[in-house]
Amino acid sequence: MPKVKAEKKSRQHQEVKNQGIMFNTGMGQHILKNPLIVNGIIEKAALRPTDVVLEVGPGTGNMTVKLLEKSKKVVACELDSRLVAELQKRVQCTPMQTKLQILVGDVLKTDLPFFDVCVCFTVLRMSTLSIYLLVYFLFVLHLFRCAVLMFQREFAMRLVAPPGDKLYCRLSINTQLLARVDHLMKVGKNNFRPPPKVESSVVRIEPKNPPPPVNFQEWDGLVRIAFVRKNKTLNAAFKSTAVEQLLEKNYRIHCSVHNVEVPADFSITKKIESVLQEAGFCEKRARSMDIDDFMVLLHAFNSAGIHFS
């Protein structure tokens, strides 16, 4: 290792030792140290004095103490027992102590109490973890008012991407179907200790209440097919052998359940083409279709007895 790099690494190691905690970056332990960013995010969360706040990954409590000042109660979920001890010491013998509940463990495997607002400022990478957390909030914990979450910037921009944007994808339309999503701010990596390798962004997610009147399993089945090749026309996307076999199986099940006879010369290819043609979607491409377009298309397929799973 070159001498300059070795010296830099040695200085960084000594700084971390002086702080008393070795942060595990593999667990997303990058502590947000800029108080201006912390205050700005809390302001945009629009907390109420009656709110119960779920904080995922409180770290050493920089955000937690601010949340305690603005809300009725904070439920902090932390996986690292060392940071739990730091957080407990920080509020011990203060008026905030009775307002803080600490849950030790993985938020995805913990029985959570009711909460109004969720905040998570752990730097979540564009990975399965980010998607799991998002799905967990939107499907399992959909009764909360809003969630303010920090993600790797590209993942965050996918959540808010509109039709036609190069980042617009299945994740974009599924999230926007279930919630209003707003990009709040960019957060540079130098605002963290230690700095992560990626730039971050903060988004605000408000679940739609009531949720849209759509069978999500059917919806996601359609969207999945369309976005496999989002630049292809739908006519081409539905010509996949695997897609045709699945839809024909579903169609025959539908006909059997409803006592509809399937003609001997039945062709699923012609059936799909007929639906796309009549609905005016043959030449449409998923990259430019919005929620209303997919709603219309799903209704057209379902009305013709074709279902998705």
Results as ranks from 00 to 15, higher is better:
133 L>Q: 04
66 K>A: 12
264 A>N: 13
264 A>V: 11
221 G>W: 03
36 L>R: 14
266 F>Q: 00
286 A>L: 05
289 M>D: 03
13 H>P: 04
48 R>P: 02
168 Y>G: 06
87 L>S: 03
23 F>Y: 08
111 D>K: 15
255 C>P: 03
144 F>Y: 14
29 Q>T: 01
305 G>H: 06
18 N>H: 15
129 L>P: 01
72 K>W: 07
281 F>W: 00
176 Q>I: 10
182 D>Q: 13
301 F>E: 00
52 V>S: 08
182 D>R: 09
198 V>A: 05
12 Q>H: 12
248 E>A: 09
309 S>M: 13
299 H>C: 12
50 T>W: 10
309 S>F: 12
208 K>A: 07
159 L>Q: 00
153 R>Q: 15
24 N>L: 09
186 K>V: 15
141 L>M: 14
233 T>M: 08
113 P>T: 04
38 V>S: 07
9 K>L: 15
298 L>M: 09
213 P>Q: 01
153 R>L: 14
300 A>F: 12
252 R>W: 02
16 V>K: 09
307 H>P: 06
238 F>G: 01
45 A>N: 07
232 K>Y: 10
19 Q>D: 11
263 P>H: 01
293 D>Y: 03
176 Q>S: 10
86 E>M: 07
68 L>E: 06
287 R>G: 06
166 K>D: 14
106 D>T: 05
256 S>F: 12
121 F>Q: 13
192 F>G: 01
146 C>L: 08
193 R>P: 00
149 L>G: 04
45 A>E: 07
136 Y>W: 11
178 L>R: 12
159 L>C: 06
196 P>H: 01
114 F>D: 13
92 Q>C: 12
164 G>A: 07
5 K>R: 15
152 Q>G: 07
161 A>G: 02
285 R>L: 06
30 H>N: 12
156 A>Y: 06
99 K>M: 07
225 I>S: 03
229 R>G: 15
11 R>C: 10
46 A>R: 14
119 V>Y: 02
66 K>S: 12
54 L>A: 03
128 T>E: 13
270 K>A: 08
270 K>Q: 12
244 E>D: 06
215 N>Q: 07
141 L>V: 07
262 V>P: 05
262 V>N: 04
103 L>W: 05
271 K>E: 10
19 Q>P: 05
278 E>Y: 10
180 R>Q: 15
176 Q>W: 10
81 S>D: 13
260 V>S: 10
251 Y>P: 02
156 A>M: 03
196 P>A: 05
136 Y>P: 04
209 N>W: 09
242 A>E: 13
